[in-house]
Design a protein around this nucleic acid. Structure first.
Length: 807
RNA sequence: GGGCGAGUGGCGGAAUUGGUAGACGCGCAGGAUUCAGGAUCCUGUGAGCAUUACGCUCGUGGGGGUUCAAGUCCCCCCUCGCCCACCA
């Protein structure tokens, strides 16, 4: 009987859905397993790059369920936000219409893959029933002082016509469209993620099942630096400014100080001075530089002498005060003490402006021409002389604190999360601006603030919602007077920072979720998605969950226990994507090979963490494998006879395969799991062909195990075969346990080496002793011949694997 | 500039704690079946030398080292990928 996946795949897809096989309800009798993938934005047509991800998650859903877990396998849609809106605009369709048809399309495609979900928990972030709770969450942050509006220099994407969060600017370019980002001073809404900076530092004890790479990326992004902040006076004036340094041990080497051009003191110092005009021109010049230019490290450092001297508090020396483009207002205090002897940037500046350089750490011999940043003995530093770096830092901090000039301090690279967007397709920010009362939150009872339908949703630099008069004009909730709504919408990353919690209780109309249901299902046991979200979504979600934990709504502070980031599928040297024109659609492959062969190749293509190159031939290989399995299951004639050695061997092979496949799936080593199943299938085929023929019980047992192991990976075929062979629903079978007695090999090949080179291979019993192994090796005919009567210097035995005779 | 990861046949890739390098698959070659093609099955397939001996030599980016034994551990170098980067 021929393998014809087209004849049964749709049948099983219907069955799983109609029987609600993978729908989940709370059940205290079983351990839960929340198996969640990053919800996709509705891009419409899926290609093999997307399907890799869905296949992995589906395998885990099916595998964990067979293992007895109460598996939560939900799906939702990141349907608000820039990606969805831009795609809609490109398609020339209203975003709502666009994403709803895309969602419908994607559901069909997921179904054809055989991916199973609990569709009763489906959610989409553009639905009022969902974004209502975005708005509620915003109000909670507002109440806690974690949401605020401020005028600040922000990133503006001229193409997308909106501001962006720091995390959404990659090397000075818009993360979405690649346009160079500009700086603008604007009133914008922020979430105070910096208040959680320390708690967001990856804690190895809680994130131990995260890819180390992602932890490092978050750590870099948060950028914690420990040091000292101290005040500096300006000679002959009243003003004082703070500087932050991580190297207080080098303070004696300060030969100048620098303010960021945006530093408020700059204007104070310039006002009315001879330098006023030239100084302002310098500030303007620096501010006009793009981020890309300003971030380039290899260009000369621009500076401007402010005409005054600052006083180094550690020795009373007066040093010239500059402003320079290499000092950033957004980090630390926006002002630095410059120590060219130990800092390369300061060195470059000092050389360019002919400023004295004093080394305060003894560099190694013949080290010259650059700053020495390494450790060494402190010199030219009065009472710090002779100490090393760490002791110098400790003693100088003590001195600063003792003199009450400065104190130990910690600074972060992380900035607050800019969450307002001047775009149409997002959740309205539930705030009202009243001329009398100022910023007033929309009362919770009036949520959701409905997102109005408009004709003209094109981005034009201010929110399209601002043009909707009956949306904008409202009564102030506080005084009743005329007031205006906030018209900016929320960053889509707000939507995605908590949606996984909502899966626990997706239809709740009275609360963001029932804490009891979240307590049962959450945190997420396995979270699967792309590494591109390492410092975006994954950081934001961790932040929001910590806020919810502080509110007492959840009992955990980390949302994702285990994180898996899959590699990309590439073709013709590039990531598979519509814009690159190198997508491979699954549909023709489903038609020709069936979904199972496609799934299996996605699993077999290479290590799940690595990028992999797509080749159509690969599906041919997994398809052949499935045909062989099919033929074994449908054409083999078994015989009734007594068990023999071959029977035990084939059962043992099945148990060893079971042990390997189980642990491989657990570790996302799908490629080797598939290889192990191929080996088992080959072993079964050999067994069937053997002289004795296949014995009924043996074949049924081993083949049944093969089908169960295939059930998560090639579900359609394995279910069909299981049913044909008289079984019920294969998904409801439990994952078998491997038998420790059976997985032990009875005999193994032992190699005999002479001086490390393999000279003989012997079959030996697994339990062979060291003495027996040596005796056997030395007695071997070939070995005897090669030794030619010479005495071995040493014999090393590692039974049962190896004996090495050292000559 | 700093940090992290990787480099294995023609190709994708295997290889707990150092212990048979190349599992599994693709491709390729030969054979069987077939009118033919396709499909399927069998055999072979790291390189070189041999083929009297399934025997020898070399072989996991390059060089050195530790060890009875190194893809695996240590040092230096090369190449590629990723992250951060005028963050004080």
């Amino acid at each position: 009987m021929q393998y014809d996946p087209g004849s049964f795949e749709a049948k099983w897809q219907d069955r799983w859905e109609q029987d609600k096989t993978f729908y989940a309800v709370e059940d205290e009798s079983r351990p839960k397993f929340a198996n969640i993938q990053m919800y996709p934005y509705p891009s419409g047509v899926l290609h093999m790059g997307h399907l890799r991800n869905y296949t992995y998650v589906d395998v885990m859903t099916r595998f964990k369920r067979m293992q007895g877990f109460n598996v939560l396998a939900p799906m939702g849609w990141d349907s608000f936000g820039l990606p969805a809106e831009n795609a809609a605009i490109a398609a020339g369709v209203h975003p709502r219409e666009f994403i709803e048809s895309q969602i419908a399309q994607m559901k069909v495609q997921l179904r054809r893959l055989g991916a199973v979900y609990d569709w009763s928990r489906e959610l989409a972030s553009h639905e009022p029933a969902y974004y209502r709770w975005d708005q509620w969450l915003f109000l909670q942050l507002w109440e806690r002082g974690l949401a605020y509006k401020a005028n600040a220099p922000v990133n503006w994407c001229p193409k997308d016509q909106t501001v962006l969060a720091n995390e959404q600017v990659v090397e000075g370019l818009c993360e979405r469209c690649g346009t160079a980002v500009e700086k603008r001073d604007l009133d914008q809404w922020f979430f105070k993620i910096t208040e959680y900076a320390d708690r967001l530092l990856p804690d190895d004890s809680q994130l131990e099942e995260w890819p180390p790479r992602v932890r490092v990326m978050q750590q870099n992004w948060i950028g914690r630096s420990q040091g000292v902040t101290f005040g500096m006076e300006i000679s002959g004036r009243q003003e004082v400014f703070d500087v932050f340094t991580t190297r207080p041990d080098t303070t004696f080497g300060m030969t100048f100080a620098v303010l960021a051009p945006e530093h408020p003191l700059v204007e104070t110092l310039l006002a009315g001075s001879d330098l006023e005009e030239a100084g302002r021109a310098f500030v303007t010049e620096v501010r006009q530089e793009s981020d890309i230019d300003r971030l380039a490290t290899d260009r000369p450092k621009k500076g401007f002498f402010l005409g005054v001297k600052a006083i180094n508090p550690i020795n009373g020396t007066e040093v010239p005060l500059y402003m320079a483009d290499y000092v950033l207002m957004g980090y630390g205090t926006g002002a630095i003490m410059a120590v060219p002897g130990q800092d390369q940037r300061d060195w470059d500046f000092a050389v360019a402006h002919d400023i004295e350089i004093i080394r305060t750490v003894q560099p190694p011999d013949d080290f010259e021409g650059e700053a020495y940043t390494g450790d060494g003995v402190i010199i030219n530093s009065d009472w710090l002389d002779g100490l090393d770096k760490d002791a110098g830092i400790a003693q100088s901090i003590e001195w600063f604190e003792g003199q009450e000039i400065g104190k130990g301090d910690v600074k972060y690279r992380l900035r607050d999360w800019l969450i307002s967007r001047q775009r149409y397709w997002g959740a309205p920010i539930p705030m009202i601006s009243c001329p009398e009362c100022g910023l007033v939150p929309v009362p919770e009872t009036e949520l959701p603030v409905l997102h109005p339908d408009v004709e003209d949703y094109q981005p034009k630099g201010r929110s399209p919602l601002a043009a909707v008069e009956d949306f904008v004009n409202v009564g102030c909730p506080s005084c009743g007077g005329p007031a205006k709504r906030e018209t900016d919408t929320m960053d889509t990353f707000v939507d995605s920072s908590w949606y996984f919690l909502r899966y626990s209780d997706p239809h709740n109309e009275d609360a963001i979720f029932d804490p009891e249901k979240v307590k049962y299902w959450m945190p997420v046991d396995l979270y699967v998605g792309g590494v591109e979200h390492a410092v975006l979504h994954l950081l934001y979600a961790r932040f929001i969950v910590k806020v919810l934990a502080d509110m007492g709504l959840v009992e955990f502070s980390e949302p994702f226990l285990r994180m898996f980031t899959q590699g990309m599928i590439t073709k013709d040297g590039a990531k598979m994507s519509k814009s690159k024109g190198n997508v491979v659609s699954p549909d023709p492959l489903y038609d020709f090979y069936g979904a199972d062969a496609v799934r299996l190749y996605e699993l077999f293509i290479g290590p799940a963490t690595d990028d992999a190159v797509w080749t159509d031939r690969g599906v041919e290989g997994t398809s052949r494998f499935l045909k062989k399995v099919w033929r074994l299951g449908t054409e083999v004639e078994t015989v009734d006879r007594d068990a023999a050695d071959g029977d035990r061997a084939v059962i043992a092979k099945a148990h060893r395969t079971l042990r390997k496949v189980g642990s491989d799936i657990e570790r996302f080593h799908f490629n080797t799991a598939v290889a192990a199943l191929m080996e088992l299938n080959n072993a079964l085929a050999d067994y069937v062909r053997s002289d004795d023929g296949a014995r009924n019980e043996t074949f049924d047992e081993a083949y049944g195990m093969l089908l169960k192991m295939l059930a998560p990976m090639a579900p359609h075929m394995s279910h069909e075969l299981w049913e044909m062979r008289g079984g019920e629903i294969l998904a409801d079978e439990s994952w078998p346990d491997w038998d420790p007695d059976l997985v032990v090999e009875e005999s193994v090949t032992m190699v005999v080496q002479i001086s490390g080179k393999v000279r003989a291979r012997l079959e030996v019993a697994t339990g062979i002793s060291e003495d027996e192994a040596i005796a056997l090796a030395l007695g071997n005919e070939r070995i005897v011949g090669l030794l030619d009567g010479l005495e071995p210097k040493r014999v090393i035995a590692r039974p049962p694997k190896l004996v090495n005779i050292v000559m």
